[in-house]
Nucleic acid binder design. Sequence first.
DNA 1: GTCGGGTTTCCTGTTT
DNA 2: AAAACAGGAAACCCGA
Length: 254
Amino acid sequence: MLDSVTHSTFLPNASFCDPLMSWTDLFSNEEYYPVFEHQTACDSYWTSVHPEYWTKRHVWEWLQFCCDQYKLDANCISFCHFNVSGLQLCSMTQEEFVEAAGICGEYLYFILQNIRTQGYSFFNDAEETKATIKDYADSSCLKTGIKSQDCHTHSRTSLQSSHLWEFVRDLLLSPEENCGILEWEDREQGIFRVVKSEALAKMWGQRKKNDRMTYEKLSRALRYYYKTGILERVDRRLVYKFGKNAHGWQEDKL
DNA sequence: GTCGGGTTTCCTGTTT
DNA sequence: AAAACAGGAAACCCGA
C-alpha cells in the first residue's frame, strides 16, 4: 500500500486544511498523514512531522517529492549539502540553498518556507501550487539570470533516478543513504556487491511505490541490463559490475 | 490512441 | 534446504 507519495493520496484535501490549524493539529491527523503499515514510528513519512523535526531521511524524502512534483532537475541538487536534519535545513539561508542546488535551491527554499508558514494548505491545489512555483521560478530567473544548465555544475548524485541501475549507482555513491546495503568490491572496475538484498529490494520498492518488490524481481530487472551493456556478469552471488554503457559511477569522472 | 522502453510479475529449471 | 541465478513470456506503466 505504498502508493503514498502521489499528490492525491498523501496530501490533505482542501476541506481539511484550516489556516488556523496548529502544526500539532496539522501533523497529528493520521487520517491525512497515515503511518504506513510497514513503517514504524521512527520510520514515519516526512509529511507526518514538522520540518524542524525532520530527520535526514525526511529531508531526503521531501527533496524527492519536490523533484517529482515540480519537475525539478535532481542533477541540480548537491546531496551532501542536504545531508542535514530538519532543524539544520530550516536554519539554512536562501543563499545556502542556492549554493546547494543552484536555481532549484531558490524553489526549494521557497517551498520550505511556505510549508513552514502555511503547513500543507500550501499544497491544497496542486495546479495552483505548481503555477505559484512556476511564477516564482520565472521571476527568479529574471531576477538572477541563472540558466538552467548552470544547475549541472552541482553534484551529479541524483536523488530520484528513474532507472534501477541509476538508483543502484546513486546508492553506491551516497554512503549516507546506503546503510551498508551495497558496497564496492572494486571501485576502479565498477564491481559492487549487494550486501542486504532484501533491504535493497525494499528501498527500490519504496522508490517505485511498490511494497511487493522483492530481491528476486529486482534481480530479474538487473539481469536485463546484461543485454544492454549497463551491467556485466560477474559469476559470483550478489556481485555485479557496471558495463560500458553505464556512466557516472567512475570516481574520476564525477 | 498507440508505441516503445523499462521494468514487474510469474514461472521452471539450475547452481551454490 | 534455502537463497540466488538464469532467462522466457506476458503484463504493466508511463512518457513521447
